[in-house]
Amino acid sequence: MDITTHPLKLTVVIASNRTGRFGPTVADWFLSRARLRTDLAVDVVDLAEVELPTALSYDPPPAVREVLGQVTPRLDSADAFVVLTPEYNHSFPAALKNLIDWHYGQWQAKPVAFVSYGGISGGLRAVEQLRQVFAELHAVTVRDTVSFHNAHGHFDEDGTHKDPEAPDGAAKVMLDQLVWWGLALREAKTVRPYGG
Rank of each mutant, 00 (worst) to 15 (best):
A41L: 08
A80I: 01
D39T: 12
T85M: 09
V44Y: 02
H6T: 14
L31G: 04
D59L: 05
V44T: 06
L8R: 00
A78D: 04
R18S: 11
R65N: 06
L31V: 04
P93M: 01
D28M: 12
T5E: 11
P60T: 04
R74H: 05
V13L: 07
A55M: 06
V64I: 13
I14A: 11
L31Y: 03
A41W: 09
D2Y: 12
H6Y: 12
H6P: 08
V67T: 11
D39K: 09
I3Q: 13
L68C: 11
S77N: 07
L36H: 05
A27Y: 14
A55I: 04
A78G: 04
Y58T: 08
L40Y: 05
D79S: 08
L36Q: 08
V83G: 07
D2V: 08
W29G: 03
R35L: 05
F30W: 10
T54W: 06
D43T: 12
L10E: 03
R74I: 09
L75V: 13
R21H: 12
V67R: 10
A48Y: 15
A27R: 01
R21N: 14
A48I: 14
V50Y: 00
T85G: 07
T54A: 06
D39S: 15
A41D: 15
F22C: 04
S91W: 00
A78V: 08
I14C: 01
V12M: 07
T19L: 14
R74C: 04
V50C: 03
L31F: 05
D2H: 14
T4R: 11
D39E: 13
T54K: 01
R33H: 09
A34T: 03
F22M: 10
L56R: 07
V13Y: 07
L84C: 10
T11W: 07
D2M: 11
R21F: 12
V71C: 00
T25D: 15
I3N: 15
V13S: 03
T25F: 01
D2F: 11
A34G: 05
L47K: 00
R37M: 09
L75A: 02
V71P: 00
D46V: 07
V26Q: 00
K9Y: 09
V42L: 11
I14W: 09
W29Q: 03
A48V: 13
L56I: 02
V82Q: 06
F30E: 02
P73W: 02
P62T: 04
I3E: 14
